[in-house]
Design a binder for these strands. Structure first.
Length: 119
DNA sequence: TCAAAGGCGCCAA
DNA sequence: CTTGGCGCCTTTG
């Protein structure tokens, strides 16, 4: 996507950036997914995709944030199915009506802000 | 300041 | 499809 102007100042504290990411995350509707990079851009962090990924791993176990709706670019699930988090992710996504094939989901259908022109 | 690393992303072969 | 390579942003030693 085009380079979105930072919603946050470069000097924003980690708390502010985290809050921004959490806020965007909380807006992800069930059955929809976004990539790390998209989430980073939407939160005003630019290309901090990796940073977002690390933030995900840092989330508390009992968090209410839909971390499972944050996946890798192109609809890929980077978390291994054998991993507890990966298993949980697939379980939740399937529960929300997503079809996971070859560790991938159809971004055109389940992408939060994708071209859902024909529904 | 330099180097290494992380639930990443994109391009070339 | 799988590899290999480089870029990106941030944190840590």
């Amino acid at each position: 996507m085009a380079d979105l102007p930072p919603l946050l100042p470069p000097a924003a504290d980690a708390d502010a950036r985290r809050a921004a990411v959490y806020l965007v995350m909380s807006q992800i509707p069930p059955g929809k997914v976004v990539s790390y990079g998209e989430l980073a851009a939407m939160a005003g962090l630019g290309r901090a995709a990796r940073w977002v990924g690390r933030l995900m791993s840092q989330l508390p176990d009992g968090t209410s944030l839909p971390w499972h709706r944050v996946i890798a670019a192109g609809g890929r699930l980077s978390l291994p199915a054998g991993s507890p988090a990966g298993h949980e992710q697939r379980m939740r996504l399937r529960a929300e009506g997503l079809t996971i094939i070859n560790d991938r989901v159809d971004m055109r259908r389940h992408g939060w802000h994708s071209t859902e022109h024909s529904g």
